[in-house]
């Protein structure tokens, strides 16, 4: 059974369809990257999973528990970080931690996490930088040792060093069997930490594949250098052409690359380079095509 299961999840705001029949299954021990531009429905999906928003149709199951108005027990296993969420400005970091310790009946103070992230917990939250606020948000999300992390653009505005530390924490969390649902705009970080990626566009899932499959299956960039004096064949039927010089051409091929290789094999080449497209290319491809 999947750790997170979204079935026909639909949510509308007036005439705007934020989620349209979304189906997703995410396993434990997996970091799932959820990609999409602003307004695509990423945050709406996470808020539905947190029980902040109620779906119009469909269901959500987290670790076997159905997410409904009447149930909040599953939240014992969930840690939540959102770049949109604000902390109480009148409290110090310590007051936040103590509040959650009492509210969640926790015995152990999260000293290890505080030391690791290097947060001054006696400082008033309103005096903290955005990076330090995000550190505190991560401590609050992890201090009860959850088995699922729901992260809504968690590294927005963080410096590279802190981002690196967060990635390490996420990978350790995954390796200990935890599941991470990670929405982001930052394609490089998704490429770096996620095992699987879902791409959402106008509330619909347009791709849901492992990182490798997504990068390898869909788009290749073939850079061909012909021997001087050879007339370059017309390759436009294979994809988008970028004529770099009189002898060099780059072709962005979607799908099977064998037909173009068959054509190229008939010509004398001085060089050929085949690259998998970056996640950014793949992401743009989905947004252009769908």
């Amino acid at each position: 059974m999947a750790f997170i299961e979204l079935t026909n999840l639909t949510k509308t705001f007036g005439k705007i369809s934020a989620l349209d029949d979304v189906n997703l299954q995410i396993e434990g021990g997996e970091i799932f990257g959820f990609l999409g531009p602003n307004g695509a429905g990423k945050s709406t999906a996470i808020r539905c999973m947190m029980g902040f928003l109620y779906p119009d149709r469909g269901s959500i199951e987290i670790d076997g528990s159905k997410v409904e108005r009447s149930t909040t027990k599953y939240l014992e296993k969930v840690g939540y970080v959102s770049s949109d969420l604000e902390l109480n400005e009148k409290w110090t970091g310590n007051e936040h931690i103590n509040f959650l310790m009492k509210a969640r009946n926790l015995q152990n103070y999260p000293s290890d996490l505080i030391d690791r992230l290097g947060l001054k917990v006696d400082e008033n939250t309103k005096n903290l930088s955005s990076g330090n606020k995000q550190k505190l948000a991560f401590i609050l999300a992890l201090m009860h040792k959850p088995s699922l992390l729901l992260l809504d653009e968690p590294t927005k505005g963080l410096d590279p060093l802190l981002q690196e530390e967060i990635y390490k924490i996420l990978i350790e969390f995954k390796n200990s069997g935890g599941c991470v649902f990670f929405s982001s705009h930052n394609l490089a970080e998704v490429e770096r930490v996620c095992d699987r990626v879902g791409i959402i566009r106008k509330g619909k899932i347009v791709a849901n594949e492992t990182m490798d499959t997504l990068q390898h299956k869909h788009i290749h960039i073939i850079n061909v250098v012909f021997v001087e004096g050879i007339e370059i064949p017309n390759l436009s039927s294979f994809g988008i052409i970028d004529q770099k010089s009189s002898t060099e051409v780059a072709v962005r091929v979607e799908g099977d690359i064998n037909p173009i290789l068959k054509i190229l094999s008939q010509y004398k080449l001085s060089d050929i380079k085949i690259d998998h497209a970056s996640l950014e290319d793949t992401f743009l491809h989905f947004y252009e095509e769908n």
């Binding site: 947190m50 029980g51 902040f52 108005r69 009447s70 909040t72 027990k73 599953y74 939240l75 014992e76 969930v78 939540y80 959102s82 949109d84 969420l85 604000e86 902390l87 109480n88 400005e89 936040h96 509040f99 959650l100 509210a103 969640r104 609050l140």
Partner: peptide, 15 residues
Amino acid sequence: ENRTLGLELSLPISR
């Protein structure tokens, strides 16, 4: 309005 209610809503406590 201040977006601080999330701290309570993310607890395993019913509304």
